[in-house]
Amino acid sequence: MQSLTTTFTRPEGLQDVVTHYCPGCTHGIIHRLVAEVLDELGVRERTLGVAPVGCSVLAYNYFNTDFLESPHGRAPALATGFKRLRPDMIVFTYQGDGDLASIGMSEIIHAANRGEKFTTIFVNNAIYGMTGGQMAPTTLAGQVATTCPMGRDTGKTGMPIRMCELLSGLVTPAYLERVAVHFPQQIIKAKKAIRRAFQYQIENKCFSLVEVLSTCPTNWGKTPAESTHWVEENLKSYFPLGVYKTPEGAK
């Protein structure tokens, strides 16, 4: 008889708890990718996470690392303060699109521009999730949200903000990549990007940010399956995947 072996387990970096995320939401996948990377790099015990305000506000209950719970949008400022005093630790912020690209725009730009040596996981699902589906700075043109019920009118609200493109305009070296997690091959690529981002931090090279296109079936009003296709057909075409900047200069 063939002996049974364990081939898939919960990473050390995650706690053994049930999350509050909605069915079909990809926060769970992204959490897991980060946790796996922390495990593989062997840094979990010296890692600090900074949770945002938004759906992932309770991330500190799910990760098995020390955590700070930040005011809305200010995670990069908290991370700056912490990392400057503890450069020996590994620090990451985990932020949504409202948190990072709206109220926290100033903090993320200045942290990136100072080249703070922490990693940001930027989860972009083009909507405010926790507050109930309002328009986000990354909501697509024509996309319906509770505060743009006729669809986003870009004549009045501007075009959705592309954070990787915007940040890549800074001269300070950084690692910026946009990935997605709606299909298995994308998940594999996303993990590679997250690992690379933490690797740059471990080497004390530069600020690193991985933008992850995510889903929000609840507020998009779609099934989980429809949502993955909506990422493929709509989000991905406005927010092209790829490496936007590396500290080495080449993309």
Partner: peptide, 26 residues
């Protein structure tokens, strides 16, 4: 020590939050 001129007082307050969490005097 660490000296950092922040981008705004909003950021200052929050940098203090992060820095104080290390247990060091800020």
């Amino acid at each position: 020590g660490v000296f950092l001129q922040a981008e705004s007082e909003v950021a200052v307050g929050n940098m203090l939050f992060g820095a104080a969490s290390t247990g060091k005097r800020v």
